[in-house]
Write a protein that binds this DNA or RNA. Structure first.
Lengths: 255, 255
DNA sequence: ACAAAAGTGTTTATAATACACCCATGA
DNA sequence: TCATGGGTGTATTATAAACACTTTTGT
């Protein structure tokens, strides 16, 4: 639990910028599908994207880094702002929601939560295997959920997730997709599956392989004997330096 | 002058969301170059992008529409959010700046202005000929300035402009470039010049023409006799319906 | 030997690029 | 009739798409 804005066991709201929040869409890739890190609210069948607030002497980006660190245990992740959600009716809940669900945090905090919030959405791409998901003060579960099978989300978080996913799709050639979402060593099939999941269409096996090999950003390693009755695939890793220098002009092997 | 938050000749700050602002990068195209609508602050050699604040019962998008309307006299323009600027040191000015420059607005407003602001940047593309630039309460000039020759800008407005221009460049195939920035009828050369200005490189004349004609979004009109000693160019206009249906998938004639 | 999936090659179609050609215009 | 810029065509190259062929693996 992030406890930085707690004081005498009550939430100290004074140090926070009012009316402004951060929401992080944290994306991972698990074998064959994209997943998103979600929080399940205590005693509710209601989920949300991890979020947080901004300190008065904090850059907004730093606040996003903090949220990410608190939920995943990870630092130095890819993190990028993608949209700010500012509709005036975006935070509506049934009356008494906060009082029922988090009475222990005190009425000052509850009043504070009831104000209108403008929230800036951040996108992060992470390797699920490295993550250590931790619930926050308002949730009891923090879990990877398939983006194809999302539960009921609070507020406008379904919109936030949708925007984030379309951001990834549009920016696919300019985001560190492979290097952020895959483990250090991976097969060509994994990499292709990843791109197929994001684009939501199948890509020709042979052409995909040819194109990405031509970019010279992959290092080929030993074969991986899977035990299956077929040819074993090579393992690959990224040449980080080449990957990053290519990223600026776009890793344009998909159109 | 926008006077909606004035009351008894003083600025009434109560109705506004504190700490949150809008900045509009309004882009036009004048013959051969991209221009941006800037405000010159009273008695200062200091310019800024038009901005404004958000009412407590106002969507952020509506606030941006209002700013645009107030500065240009125009409604129904292309307007799109592109980034939110949230560094904690982004509003620094020398001490006494507000007191010296706008004492007439009262100390409540000045105190209010001194708080930290998180500002969301909006991009608008407009036809310069249709605009009627109007200064706001803090400026005495509202003028189109070439983006290649920007004056000293206040706060982080140079960063805001830079981000907006790179946004246009990256999103070029998904923005209503031609239809927003050009007059109703235009020559092929104007259209090409526009794209060249945005991309900051020259495009082959023949290929450009062939590609855009193949999209079937242009309607050819009468020739325009320029008085020059050469073949007269055709005038074109956009087929709005076809243009808009193409935009979703990207007007992809530039790579 | 066979099925299955990996790695690579081939063919075809499409698109990008460079630039050549002819035409209209006013001096 | 000449220079200038506009409209269009062509040859070349590069890229994309479809899919065929070969290789490796375990049964």
């Amino acid at each position: 639990m992030t406890n930085i804005f707690f004081k005498d066991n009550k939430v100290d709201v004074k140090g926070l910028i009012p009316g402004q929040s951060i929401d992080c869409v944290i994306i991972g890739f698990d074998q064959h599908e994209l997943k998103i890190l979600l929080l399940k609210w205590k005693n509710k069948e209601l989920w949300s994207v991890p979020g947080g607030f901004i300190y008065k002497n904090d850059d907004m980006d730093s606040a996003a880094v903090r949220v990410l660190k608190n939920r995943t245990g990870l630092d130095f992740l890819f993190l990028e702002q993608f949209y700010t959600f500012g509709n005036c009716n975006r935070g509506k809940l049934e009356p008494g929601f906060w009082e029922e669900n988090i009475p222990e945090f005190g009425s000052d905090f509850i009043d504070w939560l009831k104000q209108r919030f403008i929230s800036t959405g951040y996108l992060s791409l992470v390797d699920i295997a490295k993550c250590n998901p931790v619930p926050d003060f308002i949730s009891d579960v923090c879990e990877w959920i398939s983006v194809d099978n999302l539960p009921k989300l609070i507020f406008d978080h379904d919109l936030i997730v949708k925007k984030a996913l379309s951001h990834i799709k549009i920016q696919i050639n300019y985001l560190p997709i492979g290097i952020s979402l895959l483990p250090k060593k991976f097969t060509m099939k994994s990499l292709r599956n990843l791109y197929e999941s994001i684009l939501n269409r199948s890509l020709d096996r042979g052409n995909f392989q040819k194109k990405i090999l031509k970019l010279k950003i992959l290092i080929r390693h030993e074969k991986q004997l899977t035990g299956a009755a077929n040819k074993a695939p090579y393992l690959y890793s990224f040449d980080k330096a080449k990957y990053k220098s290519l990223l600026d002009e776009g890793i344009g092997f998909i159109n």
